[in-house]
Computed example of a mutant assay.
Amino acid sequence: MSMAALVGPQVPFLRRFARALTGSQDLGDLAVTRLLERLAVEPGLIDRDLEPRVAVYRAFVRLWNAAPGQVVSRAEAAGSLADHRLRAMTPLPRQAFLLTAVEGFDEEDAAEILGQSPAALAELLVEAGREIGAQVATRVLVIEDEPIIAMELESLVESLGHTVIGNARTHAEALSLVRSEHPGLILADIRLADGSSGLDAVNEILRIAEMPVIFITAFPEYLLTGRRPEPAFLITKPFRGDMVRAVISQALFFDTRPRSGATLPV
Protein backbone atom coordinates (compact mmCIF):
# COMPACT_ATOMS: atom_id res chain seq x y z
CA MET A 1 0.00 0.00 0.00
CA SER A 2 1.36 3.44 -0.89
CA MET A 3 1.96 6.00 1.85
CA ALA A 4 -0.80 8.21 0.41
CA ALA A 5 -3.30 5.33 0.46
CA LEU A 6 -2.34 4.42 4.02
CA VAL A 7 -2.31 7.90 5.52
CA GLY A 8 -4.85 9.81 3.43
CA PRO A 9 -8.06 8.26 4.83
CA GLN A 10 -6.87 8.92 8.40
CA VAL A 11 -6.16 12.63 7.97
CA PRO A 12 -9.68 14.00 8.69
CA PHE A 13 -9.88 12.02 11.94
CA LEU A 14 -6.31 12.91 12.87
CA ARG A 15 -7.14 16.60 12.42
CA ARG A 16 -10.06 16.21 14.84
CA PHE A 17 -7.74 14.61 17.38
CA ALA A 18 -5.02 17.23 16.89
CA ARG A 19 -7.47 20.12 17.21
CA ALA A 20 -8.82 18.67 20.47
CA LEU A 21 -5.29 18.05 21.71
CA THR A 22 -4.11 21.60 21.02
CA GLY A 23 -7.35 23.45 21.65
CA SER A 24 -6.89 25.26 18.34
CA GLN A 25 -7.95 24.48 14.78
CA ASP A 26 -4.92 26.25 13.30
CA LEU A 27 -2.37 24.63 15.60
CA GLY A 28 -3.99 21.23 15.27
CA ASP A 29 -3.92 21.40 11.50
CA LEU A 30 -0.32 22.63 11.62
CA ALA A 31 0.69 19.64 13.76
CA VAL A 32 -0.88 17.25 11.22
CA THR A 33 0.88 19.06 8.37
CA ARG A 34 4.20 18.64 10.15
CA LEU A 35 3.57 14.91 10.45
CA LEU A 36 2.84 14.65 6.73
CA GLU A 37 6.02 16.56 5.93
CA ARG A 38 8.06 14.24 8.14
CA LEU A 39 6.52 11.15 6.55
CA ALA A 40 7.53 12.41 3.10
CA VAL A 41 11.19 12.18 4.09
CA GLU A 42 10.97 9.56 6.85
CA PRO A 43 8.31 6.98 5.87
CA GLY A 44 9.68 4.55 8.43
CA LEU A 45 7.79 6.49 11.11
CA ILE A 46 4.76 4.44 10.08
CA ASP A 47 4.74 0.90 11.45
CA ARG A 48 3.15 -1.07 8.62
CA ASP A 49 2.62 -4.07 10.89
CA LEU A 50 -0.10 -2.12 12.67
CA GLU A 51 -3.63 -1.38 11.52
CA PRO A 52 -3.37 1.83 9.41
CA ARG A 53 -5.31 4.15 11.70
CA VAL A 54 -3.40 2.94 14.76
CA ALA A 55 -0.10 3.34 12.89
CA VAL A 56 -0.85 6.91 11.80
CA TYR A 57 -2.01 8.05 15.24
CA ARG A 58 1.03 6.37 16.82
CA ALA A 59 3.38 8.27 14.52
CA PHE A 60 1.57 11.54 15.26
CA VAL A 61 1.65 11.06 19.04
CA ARG A 62 5.36 10.16 18.99
CA LEU A 63 6.18 13.39 17.14
CA TRP A 64 3.86 15.46 19.32
CA ASN A 65 5.23 14.15 22.61
CA ALA A 66 8.79 14.71 21.40
CA ALA A 67 8.01 18.46 21.28
CA PRO A 68 6.04 19.29 24.45
CA GLY A 69 6.65 23.00 23.94
CA GLN A 70 3.85 22.99 21.35
CA VAL A 71 1.20 22.88 24.09
CA VAL A 72 -1.37 25.64 23.67
CA SER A 73 -1.64 28.25 26.41
CA ARG A 74 -5.02 29.24 27.79
CA ALA A 75 -4.69 32.67 26.20
CA GLU A 76 -4.24 31.33 22.69
CA ALA A 77 -7.78 30.08 22.23
CA ALA A 78 -10.96 30.76 24.15
CA GLY A 79 -12.60 27.58 22.91
CA SER A 80 -15.53 25.68 24.31
CA LEU A 81 -16.06 24.43 27.85
CA ALA A 82 -14.70 21.06 26.75
CA ASP A 83 -11.58 22.80 25.38
CA HIS A 84 -10.97 24.45 28.76
CA ARG A 85 -11.40 21.13 30.53
CA LEU A 86 -8.94 19.46 28.18
CA ARG A 87 -6.31 22.14 28.67
CA ALA A 88 -6.52 21.67 32.44
CA MET A 89 -5.53 18.01 32.11
CA THR A 90 -1.98 16.69 32.12
CA PRO A 91 -0.69 15.50 28.71
CA LEU A 92 -0.75 11.70 28.77
CA PRO A 93 -4.08 11.31 30.61
CA ARG A 94 -5.54 13.87 28.19
CA GLN A 95 -4.29 11.87 25.22
CA ALA A 96 -5.56 8.58 26.66
CA PHE A 97 -8.97 10.11 27.28
CA LEU A 98 -9.22 11.63 23.79
CA LEU A 99 -8.13 8.42 22.08
CA THR A 100 -10.76 6.32 23.84
CA ALA A 101 -13.63 8.74 24.49
CA VAL A 102 -13.46 10.87 21.32
CA GLU A 103 -11.57 8.86 18.72
CA GLY A 104 -13.20 5.54 19.66
CA PHE A 105 -10.08 3.41 20.01
CA ASP A 106 -10.31 0.44 22.33
CA GLU A 107 -7.85 0.32 25.21
CA GLU A 108 -5.49 -2.09 23.45
CA ASP A 109 -5.13 0.20 20.44
CA ALA A 110 -4.87 3.32 22.61
CA ALA A 111 -2.06 1.67 24.58
CA GLU A 112 -0.26 0.86 21.32
CA ILE A 113 -0.62 4.43 20.08
CA LEU A 114 0.79 5.88 23.30
CA GLY A 115 3.53 3.27 23.63
CA GLN A 116 2.13 2.15 26.98
CA SER A 117 1.34 -1.24 28.45
CA PRO A 118 -2.38 -2.05 28.88
CA ALA A 119 -1.99 -1.66 32.65
CA ALA A 120 -0.33 1.74 32.26
CA LEU A 121 -3.06 2.85 29.84
CA ALA A 122 -5.70 1.85 32.40
CA GLU A 123 -3.91 3.98 35.01
CA LEU A 124 -3.83 6.94 32.62
CA LEU A 125 -7.58 6.65 32.13
CA VAL A 126 -8.13 6.49 35.89
CA GLU A 127 -6.01 9.62 36.29
CA ALA A 128 -7.97 11.30 33.49
CA GLY A 129 -11.14 10.45 35.37
CA ARG A 130 -9.77 11.98 38.57
CA GLU A 131 -8.71 15.16 36.77
CA ILE A 132 -12.10 15.46 35.08
CA GLY A 133 -13.80 14.76 38.41
CA ALA A 134 -11.84 17.60 40.01
CA GLN A 135 -13.32 19.95 37.39
CA VAL A 136 -16.88 18.63 37.21
CA ALA A 137 -17.45 16.89 40.54
CA THR A 138 -21.13 16.14 40.95
CA ARG A 139 -23.71 14.28 43.02
CA VAL A 140 -24.57 10.82 41.74
CA LEU A 141 -27.67 8.68 42.21
CA VAL A 142 -27.29 4.92 41.82
CA ILE A 143 -30.44 3.00 40.84
CA GLU A 144 -29.55 -0.64 41.53
CA ASP A 145 -31.33 -3.39 43.49
CA GLU A 146 -28.28 -5.63 44.09
CA PRO A 147 -26.49 -4.37 47.25
CA ILE A 148 -23.04 -5.69 46.34
CA ILE A 149 -23.17 -4.13 42.86
CA ALA A 150 -24.46 -0.87 44.34
CA MET A 151 -21.55 -0.79 46.80
CA GLU A 152 -19.05 -1.43 43.99
CA LEU A 153 -20.53 1.38 41.89
CA GLU A 154 -20.41 3.72 44.89
CA SER A 155 -16.71 2.96 45.37
CA LEU A 156 -15.98 3.57 41.67
CA VAL A 157 -17.87 6.86 41.68
CA GLU A 158 -16.16 8.14 44.80
CA SER A 159 -12.72 7.17 43.47
CA LEU A 160 -13.27 9.84 40.78
CA GLY A 161 -14.09 12.54 43.33
CA HIS A 162 -17.89 12.47 43.03
CA THR A 163 -20.45 12.07 45.83
CA VAL A 164 -23.05 9.30 45.90
CA ILE A 165 -26.26 10.76 47.33
CA GLY A 166 -28.01 7.39 47.67
CA ASN A 167 -28.97 4.09 46.13
CA ALA A 168 -32.53 3.53 44.95
CA ARG A 169 -33.84 -0.06 44.73
CA THR A 170 -37.27 0.83 43.32
CA HIS A 171 -38.95 3.31 40.97
CA ALA A 172 -40.48 5.23 43.90
CA GLU A 173 -37.19 5.45 45.79
CA ALA A 174 -35.45 6.80 42.68
CA LEU A 175 -37.98 9.61 42.23
CA SER A 176 -37.90 10.46 45.94
CA LEU A 177 -34.10 10.72 46.00
CA VAL A 178 -33.99 12.85 42.87
CA ARG A 179 -36.55 15.26 44.35
CA SER A 180 -34.75 15.55 47.68
CA GLU A 181 -31.08 15.32 46.69
CA HIS A 182 -30.88 16.82 43.16
CA PRO A 183 -28.21 14.60 41.57
CA GLY A 184 -26.18 15.65 38.55
CA LEU A 185 -25.70 12.12 37.19
CA ILE A 186 -27.63 8.83 37.34
CA LEU A 187 -26.28 5.28 37.09
CA ALA A 188 -29.26 3.00 36.49
CA ASP A 189 -30.08 -0.67 36.15
CA ILE A 190 -33.28 -1.45 34.23
CA ARG A 191 -34.69 -4.24 36.46
CA LEU A 192 -35.49 -3.16 40.00
CA ALA A 193 -36.37 -4.91 43.25
CA ASP A 194 -40.13 -4.29 43.10
CA GLY A 195 -40.37 -5.56 39.52
CA SER A 196 -40.49 -2.03 38.18
CA SER A 197 -38.32 -0.70 35.38
CA GLY A 198 -35.31 1.54 35.91
CA LEU A 199 -35.87 2.74 32.36
CA ASP A 200 -39.37 3.92 33.25
CA ALA A 201 -38.02 5.65 36.35
CA VAL A 202 -35.33 7.44 34.34
CA ASN A 203 -37.78 8.47 31.63
CA GLU A 204 -40.07 9.96 34.28
CA ILE A 205 -37.15 11.82 35.87
CA LEU A 206 -35.96 13.19 32.52
CA ARG A 207 -39.40 14.58 31.74
CA ILE A 208 -38.94 17.07 34.58
CA ALA A 209 -35.15 17.46 34.81
CA GLU A 210 -32.12 16.99 32.57
CA MET A 211 -28.96 15.16 33.60
CA PRO A 212 -26.62 12.57 32.07
CA VAL A 213 -27.75 8.96 32.56
CA ILE A 214 -25.58 5.85 32.30
CA PHE A 215 -27.44 2.54 32.09
CA ILE A 216 -25.60 -0.44 33.60
CA THR A 217 -27.50 -3.61 32.80
CA ALA A 218 -27.27 -7.31 32.06
CA PHE A 219 -30.06 -6.85 29.49
CA PRO A 220 -28.79 -4.37 26.89
CA GLU A 221 -31.16 -5.85 24.31
CA TYR A 222 -34.04 -4.06 26.08
CA LEU A 223 -32.38 -0.72 25.34
CA LEU A 224 -30.62 -1.30 22.00
CA THR A 225 -33.74 -1.89 19.95
CA GLY A 226 -32.90 0.31 16.98
CA ARG A 227 -35.78 2.60 17.94
CA ARG A 228 -35.06 6.12 19.14
CA PRO A 229 -34.32 7.41 21.63
CA GLU A 230 -31.57 5.02 22.67
CA PRO A 231 -29.20 5.66 25.58
CA ALA A 232 -26.02 7.57 24.85
CA PHE A 233 -24.17 5.69 27.60
CA LEU A 234 -24.65 1.96 28.15
CA ILE A 235 -22.47 -0.51 30.08
CA THR A 236 -23.22 -4.22 30.16
CA LYS A 237 -22.91 -6.44 33.21
CA PRO A 238 -20.64 -7.92 34.34
CA PHE A 239 -18.78 -4.63 34.04
CA ARG A 240 -15.14 -3.69 34.44
CA GLY A 241 -14.29 -0.93 36.88
CA ASP A 242 -12.10 0.92 34.40
CA MET A 243 -14.94 0.94 31.86
CA VAL A 244 -17.38 2.43 34.39
CA ARG A 245 -14.87 5.13 35.35
CA ALA A 246 -14.20 5.98 31.70
CA VAL A 247 -17.88 6.29 30.79
CA ILE A 248 -18.64 8.41 33.88
CA SER A 249 -15.81 10.74 32.91
CA GLN A 250 -17.00 10.90 29.31
CA ALA A 251 -20.62 11.61 30.27
CA LEU A 252 -19.67 14.46 32.60
CA PHE A 253 -16.86 15.87 30.46
CA PHE A 254 -19.15 16.57 27.52
CA ASP A 255 -22.11 17.71 29.62
CA THR A 256 -22.32 21.52 29.61
CA ARG A 257 -25.13 21.87 32.15
CA PRO A 258 -24.43 23.39 35.59
CA ARG A 259 -23.10 20.89 38.13
CA SER A 260 -25.70 21.76 40.76
CA GLY A 261 -27.92 18.93 39.57
CA ALA A 262 -31.65 18.69 38.96
CA THR A 263 -34.34 20.91 40.38
CA LEU A 264 -37.58 19.00 40.67
CA PRO A 265 -41.03 19.96 41.92
CA VAL A 266 -41.91 18.40 45.26
Rank of each mutant, 00 (worst) to 15 (best):
T138H: 03
E107S: 13
R38Q: 03
A110I: 04
A67K: 12
G69S: 13
G44S: 12
A111L: 01
L114H: 05
D145I: 02
L98W: 06
I113S: 00
A88I: 07
V32I: 04
D106M: 02
R87Q: 08
D83P: 01
V142D: 01
Q135L: 14
A78W: 12
A59H: 04
L114G: 01
F60Q: 02
V54C: 08
I113R: 00
P52M: 09
P118A: 01
A77T: 10
Q116L: 15
L125Q: 08
A110V: 03
E76P: 02
Y57T: 08
Q135P: 05
P118S: 03
R38S: 02
R87P: 03
A67S: 13
A55K: 01
R94S: 05
R34P: 00
G28M: 03
S73G: 12
L27C: 08
Q95L: 12
E127Q: 14
R19L: 07
E127D: 15
T33P: 02
L92R: 14
L63D: 07
R58F: 09
E127G: 08
R130S: 10
D83S: 12
A31Y: 00
Q135G: 05
W64Q: 09
A59K: 03
A59T: 07
V102K: 14
A101D: 04
E123C: 08
A88N: 11
L141M: 08
A75F: 09
F105D: 00
E42Q: 14
E127M: 12
E112D: 12
E42I: 12
A82Y: 11
D145N: 09
A101C: 12
H84C: 11
V126A: 14
Q116G: 06
P52Y: 05
V140N: 02
F97K: 01
D29V: 02
L99P: 02
N65K: 11
A59R: 00
L27S: 07
D26V: 14
P91M: 12
A134Y: 11
A134P: 05
N65C: 11
G28R: 03
Q116K: 15
D47R: 08
A82K: 11
A78G: 12
R87N: 04
L121M: 15
E107R: 15
V102C: 12
V32T: 00
E108F: 09
D145T: 04
L81C: 10
S117K: 07
P118W: 00
T90G: 09
V142T: 02
A20K: 10
R34I: 01
P93W: 02
L121I: 11
P52E: 05
A20F: 10
A20L: 13
G129A: 05
V71L: 15
V72I: 10
S117P: 07
R85K: 11
L114M: 15
V142Y: 00
T22V: 09
I132A: 08
Q135A: 09
E42D: 14
F97H: 05
A128Q: 03
A78M: 12
I143L: 06
A67C: 13
Q95Y: 10
Q70E: 15
D26F: 13
L86N: 04
R94A: 07
A88L: 14
D29Y: 04
A120K: 09
A75C: 11
Q25K: 15
A128E: 02
G104C: 04
F105G: 01
R58A: 15
V32E: 01
T90S: 15
F97E: 02
A137C: 10
G104N: 08
G104T: 05
L114Y: 00
E108L: 14
V140R: 01
D106R: 10
G44D: 10
E76K: 07
A110D: 00
